[in-house]
Design a protein around this nucleic acid. Structure first.
Lengths: 276, 276
DNA sequence: TCCTGGTGTACGCTGTGCGTACGATTTGCA
DNA sequence: TGCAAATCGTACGCACAGCGTACACCAGGA
């Protein structure tokens, strides 16, 4: 009965693992501490299956029970640590982001592309208060962010197609560019300019500039960004005052990466015990 | 043959899920981009099994291949987001930590206990530069940190036992308290005082003070901390100048939590699109 | 008192996921 | 240039891991 061309999708995929993550991700703001039955409903799995998975995750330390209600434990945060530990770019970039934030007095970020989103992988907040939670691990739609456009412009054509077709360029404000042709033109311009500035297309009043970070081979592996409020600066001011700094710092990061190379990893170990 | 008391360890645990996480965590600083064979060696799994697991994780978007080498993707960072999204304490605490950091000019942190470690779940860095990567998700041994002692002191007896027996109170500097009896005395004092100050027991020259955060029912659910350098302040100065502020802020957080209650969750949704 | 909605668990069948085994490919060395 | 060693991917058949059905139980509310 698996004769249909679509069926039999990959015999090389392990159902239980996919189920495990489905359960783990069933914990969200809509259901922060669900019962096993609730998890079963949300995931579409049978209750005994969910129970087995929750017990497994509990044994691994990622969830705990309190009465009938299950909760994530802080241990899930450590999974992300492995990403940081395996990407020298984060370590390398941190001081440069700090420098950027200090010279400008605004927020500085580092991000990579993930499907149709960008994900922040490092960030230094503006001292200017009330940052609020655009923090490491946060996803934002690539098409309406300066970093997303830089990463798309210098990434593969398939990634651009995915953003257009899969994502569909939804309007997030009245200013969001939603026309594919227009969008491709913009990306072309980004490729020519070597930077992107986005003004209020993600959120009204939010202004951001981004430049690509290149590895030793010249491949774009991330983007850095400067973010501010339209109330404080115009795009023209950003282009004039901030862009040179931003591009310089992007190049500096590239140089540092080239020095490090993919060479035998030096001890990044002590980092765990290094304090301010 | 499952008659032996030890054997038959839980039929309610799913092997594949445990294997999946084992593979995911096989990516670390010692092996940032391993081949499938390397992963097999590190995890003790067969190569085809590892291959299936990697393909599964790739399909989920958590790893990618480049040639023969596998790497984590930034998507693993989003797993941690679910923890933040399901714990109102983080959201509630952030502004208070900021206030603490601004009033003192040093770093402020929020942590919870995980086994024998504390895990940072929120943090505001000192503007004083070069913080360096004691960041969200970082684990530190509970027995030698102010936050760990607060959480142990106000936690269950089993947690204290675990820290002593499982962890073994290893000396991290010459000052670390390693004697169980001495350690229990200190915890007792913390319980009496309602705070902990640790001076150079985790790392030479590192000085930290911590106070418990209580929920509406009075249960200690986290700890906040103030961290500085011994070069800048003595423990006595911290006790005199900072401790009152720290305890006040811990109480403020508790009040905010009580207000929120476990009541029907209000929208925390917009947070995703809120900027500085 | 029943009813609702949660829980744990026994159990037998199925098909998932296992590892062995093999062929293809690449790399280093003679 | 050719052989050997060490990768890789993958086919395949078997075993048992994990599945869901079914049932018992328990707490709270009507």
């Amino acid at each position: 009965m698996n004769d249909s061309p679509e069926a039999g999708l990959d015999r090389d995929r392990i159902q239980s693992i996919e189920r495990g993550f489905a359960v783990l991700l069933a914990f969200d703001e809509e259901s922060p501490s669900p019962t096993a039955t609730e998890v079963a409903e949300r995931t579409g799995l049978s209750r005994p299956a969910v129970r087995r998975i929750l017990l497994t995750l509990q044994h691994l330390g990622y969830v705990k029970v309190s009465g009938q209600r299950w909760m994530l434990t802080p241990r899930v945060l450590t999974i992300g640590q492995h990403f940081a530990a395996t990407n020298s770019i984060i370590e390398v970039t941190q001081p440069h982001l700090l420098r950027l934030a200090e010279r400008t007095g605004e927020s500085a970020s580092l991000a990579q592309l993930d499907g149709i989103d960008v994900i922040y992988i490092a960030r230094v907040h503006a001292r200017r208060v009330l940052s609020l939670n655009v923090d490491i691990g946060t996803r934002l739609p690539a098409h309406a962010t300066a970093m997303g456009r830089v990463l798309a412009a210098f990434g593969g054509a398939d990634e651009v197609d995915r953003i257009i077709n899969e994502g569909g360029l939804p309007a997030l404000t009245s200013r969001t560019v939603t026309d594919p042709i227009n969008f491709r033109d913009i990306l072309h311009q980004v490729r020519v300019d070597g930077f992107a500035i986005v003004d209020g297309e993600l959120e009204e009043g939010f202004l951001s500039a981004s430049a690509p970070v290149r590895d030793a081979k010249g491949a774009v592996i991330a983007a850095i960004a400067y973010s501010t409020s339209r109330a404080r600066q115009t795009p023209e001011e950003v282009a004039r005052d901030v862009l040179p700094i931003l591009r310089e710092i992007a190049l500096d990061i590239g140089s540092d990466l080239a020095v490090l190379g993919d060479r035998p990893r030096v001890l990044a170990l002590g980092a765990r015990n290094t304090f301010s």
